[in-house]
Design a binder for these strands. Sequence first.
DNA 1: AAATAAACGAGACGGTACGTCTAGTCTTTCA
DNA 2: TGAAAGACTAGACGTACCGTCTCGTTTATTT
Lengths: 207, 207, 207, 207
Amino acid sequence: MEQQSARLGRPRSERARAAVLHAADDLLVELGYAAMTVKGIADRAGVGRQTVYRWWSTKAEILLEASADDARQELAVEPASDPVDGLTQYLDALAVFLTRSHAGAAYRALTGEAQHDPAVAALLDGDDVIGDSARAVLGRILGEDADRGTLDQATALLIGPLFYWLFTDHDPALLDTRAMAETCHLQLVRAGEGDGAQARPAASQPL
Amino acid sequence: MEQQSARLGRPRSERARAAVLHAADDLLVELGYAAMTVKGIADRAGVGRQTVYRWWSTKAEILLEASADDARQELAVEPASDPVDGLTQYLDALAVFLTRSHAGAAYRALTGEAQHDPAVAALLDGDDVIGDSARAVLGRILGEDADRGTLDQATALLIGPLFYWLFTDHDPALLDTRAMAETCHLQLVRAGEGDGAQARPAASQPL
Amino acid sequence: MEQQSARLGRPRSERARAAVLHAADDLLVELGYAAMTVKGIADRAGVGRQTVYRWWSTKAEILLEASADDARQELAVEPASDPVDGLTQYLDALAVFLTRSHAGAAYRALTGEAQHDPAVAALLDGDDVIGDSARAVLGRILGEDADRGTLDQATALLIGPLFYWLFTDHDPALLDTRAMAETCHLQLVRAGEGDGAQARPAASQPL
Amino acid sequence: MEQQSARLGRPRSERARAAVLHAADDLLVELGYAAMTVKGIADRAGVGRQTVYRWWSTKAEILLEASADDARQELAVEPASDPVDGLTQYLDALAVFLTRSHAGAAYRALTGEAQHDPAVAALLDGDDVIGDSARAVLGRILGEDADRGTLDQATALLIGPLFYWLFTDHDPALLDTRAMAETCHLQLVRAGEGDGAQARPAASQPL
DNA sequence: AAATAAACGAGACGGTACGTCTAGTCTTTCA
DNA sequence: TGAAAGACTAGACGTACCGTCTCGTTTATTT
């Protein structure tokens, strides 16, 4: 007496799902995002085109599913005793992620696409792997009581310069990540001193 | 003693050039970058498709030519007596540019596209309107003797947070631009004190 | 024990095939062969362009497929008791075919095109509807034992004058088809008398 | 007192005219009629495109002008003592012309094109080099008193079979030209005996 | 000699078909 | 019912050529 009859019909093929995700990852590296096509992914995966469309709407969705787990793992930095060390390590991990890993290449491509495709923007907004990882690191320094707005601005302060540096195609080796971490940490401390500070443009307090 | 014999053949039509640039600008706003096509631009401009391809290779080139002049003008901020005021005004102008103006929309789209199209990346690298404008403002504070590496890092520090904020689709009104300007200015001053400092990752000095 | 399992995938659309052939026929009459385009055929047929190219390489192939069946039918002349009557009826049918029917217009165009397009020449050579029909009529007179070379020359003798007459744009009403048939028949008889004759240029025997 | 003053302006360049005609001839041989383009001719001739369009409307006109003189010369057969010899020599010359000479290739292409381009048909109708040459040969046999209709039908009878043979891409070596000439001559004699005969389909007299 | 006039080469113009590509959908058979 | 195969309509791609239209230049005749 099954309370919920098993879903009818042939169950989804895990083999097909994995093949599609792998094919997308491969093609991103081989051809780049722009040259990737749904047709190409399906052909490479040995899968019918309809099967792709049945489970994913766009190549962006495929790529996100193919990369999210890897990204989360690569951006998880264990706590350091010194806050500046922790921030520096995080920035270094982020730089490596964005410039060296497959998943990072996918995120650069998707973030780029999001600038002119609202659907991709919404997709990324719903699963902000990079932002979440940064907020996790910053949360360990600011404590549990930090509100979301403060965390968001601190995130921008921390990773913004690196983000800009890489998105304008500069060499990450030429960027002083420790200096960035120190700058960010200094602001965190200053903001903490200004008690009850609320970060709003009208007020001129630092953060 | 003619230095250059007059060019042969029918001269390029300024009318056609302007029509293409206007059409590209219009279509970017109406349809967005992804939905723009060379065919669409040519049709809208009342111009043959070959005429577009004769002078531009990609829609990115068209858009860049259509926006560069506007961008340069919108990002030119006159000197302020107080350095922090100057930086703040520049950040505000940049935020308005990227979120409100046609040319800014074009630059967001192009910078996004550059993440997965090396040709577009090269194009932007060759004419870095935003970076140039930031370096101009920072140069007024750092003086003539500032070297390029220092200027580049200062640029990242100044506009990186805003850049990240907007590229991850946040509301610019929620970002404290004056705080960003102060943070940047503080680092400029600290770096100036550390005389003969050379900003390299190995060294831990701030900038 | 199936000899051939049914083919995979969506089967070819008979609707699309028929629409293309009809469209080609219509456009030949309306515009003429030179002004026909593959694009025009596809549009008129309400069919994707790729669908046309999937099944046919050139407009010549389309036209041939559209006309071959009609041509075969229009050129089939039933046996007459008198040989000269049979030949005359065939010539009249051929004249009507080439000057009045859609299929005939297609054959004129294709034969013309074959003069400067080897691909079209090969196409017609592989399915010589007109020659086949003439050889069928002549075979009834010459008997089963006529070899191919003799049949081919008799064909040239029979329809050559009419062919030239029409291809140089003369009025078919001004040509005496019975005289042509008689001439041809006379030669057939003369050649039959010269027993064991082999038609070769070196020898001067008539056929 | 010149009644018609020499025309004003720069006179037509004989150099350009010759270069265009040569280029057309070359390209016909190299590429074939279908692949020839006005642009290609102009480029090959080192001539502006407008110069071509100023003097010729279509590539057919160019080709006709380039070939007519050669054709007339190649098809001029001197009188023979025996009529059948004369006809045979003419047919052989025509076969060589159509299959071996540049000018002949041009005529095959043009005659082909005429089947689906009325403008080309009109062009050829106005300067029927092949028909004229055949009528000249036949006129020498039939005498001055032969009327145009009789000459035309005799022409069809004489060259029709060869014409068909070559237009359906057969080897001219396999056709017995002397037999064709004899057949034609026999009919000329028979028609001559039937005094005052007028060739009309209604009547059943041979020619 | 200067003015006039037409032809010249070069090459850009708007237009349109080419044949290819991918999108996203539809229709089969097989598991 | 899902998956594979593959045909379907639709439409953009970048190229080629069309026939026309400027350009500046050249070569004549006419003043």
